[in-house]
Design a protein around this nucleic acid. Structure first.
Lengths: 215, 215
DNA sequence: GCGGAACCGTACCGTACGGTACGCCTGCGG
DNA sequence: CCGCAGGCGTACCGTACGGTACGGTTCCGC
């Protein structure tokens, strides 16, 4: 039962969304604690209903991840008015959104769930997370980078490389350390540094790819 | 039963290492397929022995991860003969080792296992992987960076920031995509580009942190 | 050769959980 | 008022798996 790529308002009824919220809460609270019985109890519905709506446990998991992942919003930038200032602000906004998302407990949970899933030869959850995370960023960022190149604000050969460098400069080792549960990297700890990290990453990216006049 | 941080030759008997090898093979082959029965069968030993040696399933998992993670070797660089050329080669070697490791199936499996574990409020495996992965790199790389700064080959304020930038430039989105099972990123696919990526990352790092004469 | 320790293989137990069946209640169209 | 669809709660089933027990075998020290 492959779910549609795009989740619209009517994909799930309000009642179903309440169930998905319960499932997500359980996931966040207690990683693998997503048992059908627990979801049913939390959502005050019967297991039979769960199976009717979502098919099986995997379907529920997929629906939960998909529904939540689609909520990640992405900044929209007007490509037609690019200037050095606008470009920098756009990059900073992307970096800020990316870091803020990655640091969030929901994102950590979803990524962990998808990684766990991927360890079982199933890549559906991983694809959903990728599609709504890194790849969504890439889709939004690449046109901007290319527009900036056209406007002589940036210099690079492949926008793919530029995007991936930006990603690396922003994320660094934060995500993997959070996923691995590094205690030296509390959420609040990272959040406090987001603004500084955003600025540093943007500066570095512009130093590498910016046309000289715009550094 | 906390295991020692450092794994020496005598930590496990050859027979025990054979068991751990079997466990690791099962992990790699089939992510969560690490059942005690499967390990016992694969290693031709009894479950009772497994419990006697490793306490419980978690102990076996921990021993497996720890034993394997400790195998990751790290380049050793002589800090006393730093030149621009030696520095560049050292950085490239670090980048190459890091990428090669990350791309390997064993590393992917270990990281996935540790992430899954971290989703259950247990951070022991995550700590082991961190300790033998990113943190090991950091321990080795930082002194080199600082020596290079002393030799006026690099410029930075905090070596921590420099290290993390290097990590980001090298790893970019490769690891998270591999962990999530991105099919657009096959192992062979990445391996073919390692040398180019190593050079690009090193160039970028030196462009950001190198003293001008050494770019 | 003998006793015991270590270990193999297997049978066994308890539990947790995915999935199903069923009885009951509620709301709604006719 | 009746019938029925949708859904709740619960009991139930089968299985997989962690963990234990036990008989049989090998090997080593004495």
């Amino acid at each position: 039962m492959p779910l549609p790529i795009k989740i619209s308002e009517e994909t799930f009824t309000p009642r179903q969304q309440a169930v998905l919220t319960a499932a997500l809460d359980l996931l966040v609270e207690n990683g693998d604690g997503l048992t059908m019985t627990a979801v049913a109890r939390r959502a005050s519905c019967s297991k039979e209903t769960l199976y009717k709506w979502f098919g099986d446990r995997d379907g529920l998991l997929t629906a939960t991840v998909q529904w939540q992942a689609a909520k990640v919003r992405m900044p929209h930038v007007d490509r037609s008015h690019l200037s050095a200032k606008v470009l920098r602000e756009s990059l900073e906004q992307f970096a800020r959104d990316l870091l803020t998302t990655i640091v969030g407990e929901v994102s950590i949970t979803l990524n962990r769930t998808a990684v766990t899933h991927a360890a079982q030869e199933k890549d559906s959850l991983g694809n959903i997370v990728l599609e709504n995370g890194p790849l969504a960023i890439r889709r939004r960022l690449k046109p901007i980078l290319e527009a900036a190149r056209d406007a002589r604000l940036l210099r690079f050969n492949a926008s793919e490389d530029a995007y991936r460098t930006f990603f690396g400069l922003v994320v660094r080792d934060v995500q993997i350390r959070l996923l691995l549960g590094d205690k030296g990297l509390t959420q609040s700890n990272v959040e406090a540094n987001i603004e500084a990290d955003v600025k540093a990453a943007t500066d570095q990216f512009l130093a590498l790819y910016g046309a000289k006049a715009n550094i």
